[in-house]
Design a binder for these strands. Sequence first.
DNA 1: GCTTTACCTTCCAGTTGGTGGAAGGAATAT
DNA 2: ATATTCCTTCCACCAACTGGAAGGTAAAGC
Lengths: 133, 133
Amino acid sequence: MNISEASELVGIPPKTIRYYEDIGLISSHRSENGYRVYDARDLHMLNFLGRARSLGFTIESCRSLLALYQDPDRASAEVKKVAQQHRDEIDCKIEELQAMRAVLTTLVESCRGDERPDCPILNALSAPLKLHQ
Amino acid sequence: MNISEASELVGIPPKTIRYYEDIGLISSHRSENGYRVYDARDLHMLNFLGRARSLGFTIESCRSLLALYQDPDRASAEVKKVAQQHRDEIDCKIEELQAMRAVLTTLVESCRGDERPDCPILNALSAPLKLHQ
DNA sequence: GCTTTACCTTCCAGTTGGTGGAAGGAATAT
DNA sequence: ATATTCCTTCCACCAACTGGAAGGTAAAGC
């Protein structure tokens, strides 16, 4: 099967599939005319990658996970470690975003949002800089 | 004052300040030797940018906010719109991350994480692809 | 058989928001 | 006089793609 059919089946754009090959995440066979050819095994790997990416794993983590997946002697502890680290990073990001969200909510709620120029949002952003010591 | 002193005062690296000038977010005067010189007004703008960036506003939103700030005839509704859109985007990101987090938590908790190879995390990632249609 | 369309290839450039480093000039300290 | 620090510009790199150009191949229509 050619790249566009594979793309349809796994829900990953052809460009992205080529990109994954470029960076060595996957490999591919070529037919005589030079076209990439995908079989069930390739689709399986692509699907794995799609799932991992949709959970937010970085490409490098995906590379690790794929390597672990293909190693029958892996320890599940290794896999768990990768997943846990990723979850910790997600937790950090959520907290950062929630902190931003809290400030933004306060600011948005304090602004009347009419045609007049006075604006607590701009006031907050332009507040005098506090010198660190 | 030179760039490194300004950098210290507003807490933005010199590289980043030059970058902001490069993309036209701010301007700067030069002294005779070609060095950038910053006054209170410049620090004020930089500080504004630092605050906006720390709230997660994109560079383009910062550009808009700065323009609004410098326009005495602005309508606060414009500012509020920018802030609200940004908060909405943050909300989206938080939801995405929380969805990922939920799946990851389930997976991590289901994996024993020992020296054996069987792993529910890898099983989930490698589950057979469901064909759309 | 010829042409059009659709698909494939590679390669180059752009996205966001900076950061690192090299090469070279200027100011300050010793 | 020299060493160190600071300044300048420019180029390259990070993640994870995406868009588009230039050119070859395959399938469909007439």
